[in-house]
């Protein structure tokens, strides 16, 4: 048994070009901790998608990663517009991203579906006009 290791990141909503950097940092940390490639990949993809979402839709937010004995937990929290219809948002291909974001290659409507696909547990806590907190876990 050991204490969980925690990492905290502020995801900057102002600077689109820095989006995705927190997931790169987490990947490096997981590599140092000796996690197998598969776990590293699932955590970093789920986190990357979430990070991009926060920048596109919510002007950024925070990302907290906790390494527990049994799983790695990622909590992404923002004070953005919230998700009015979660079922619709979870459908592959559904996207509310603006054209300028799509022009960059994002907004394909795969963000939330990928986050679900690559994690073992995902919970979305959202309120329109207040914000969204997504909790994901990848089992070790």
């Amino acid at each position: 048994m050991h204490e969980p290791v925690k990492f905290h990141f502020n995801v900057d909503g102002e600077n689109f070009s820095s989006a995705g950097e927190a997931s790169v940092m987490v990947k490096k940390k997981l590599r140092q901790l000796g996690f197998p490639p598969d776990v590293m990949r699932r955590v970093s993809i789920a986190m990357y998608e979430g990070e991009i979402n926060m920048v596109i839709h919510a002007d950024g937010g925070s990302a907290d990663v906790t390494v527990e004995d049994e799983y790695i937990e990622i909590v992404l929290a923002d004070k953005g517009p919230g998700i009015p219809n979660i079922d619709l948002a979870m459908q592959e291909g559904y996207s509310t991203a603006r054209d300028n974001i799509r022009a960059l290659g994002f907004g394909a409507g795969m963000g939330l579906p990928n986050m679900k696909k690559y994690t073992d547990y995902m919970h979305i806590d959202t309120e329109v006009g207040v914000g969204t907190t997504i909790t994901m876990r990848v089992n070790i």
């Binding site: 204490e3 290791v5 940390k29 590599r31 140092q32 901790l33």
Partner: peptide
Amino acid sequence: EYNPYNRLSNNRSEAMRMMAEIE
């Protein structure tokens, strides 16, 4: 072949303890 180079320790518990200390 994949050859990770910067593992803190081969023991996960030890690596986690070291990581917490680093932070």
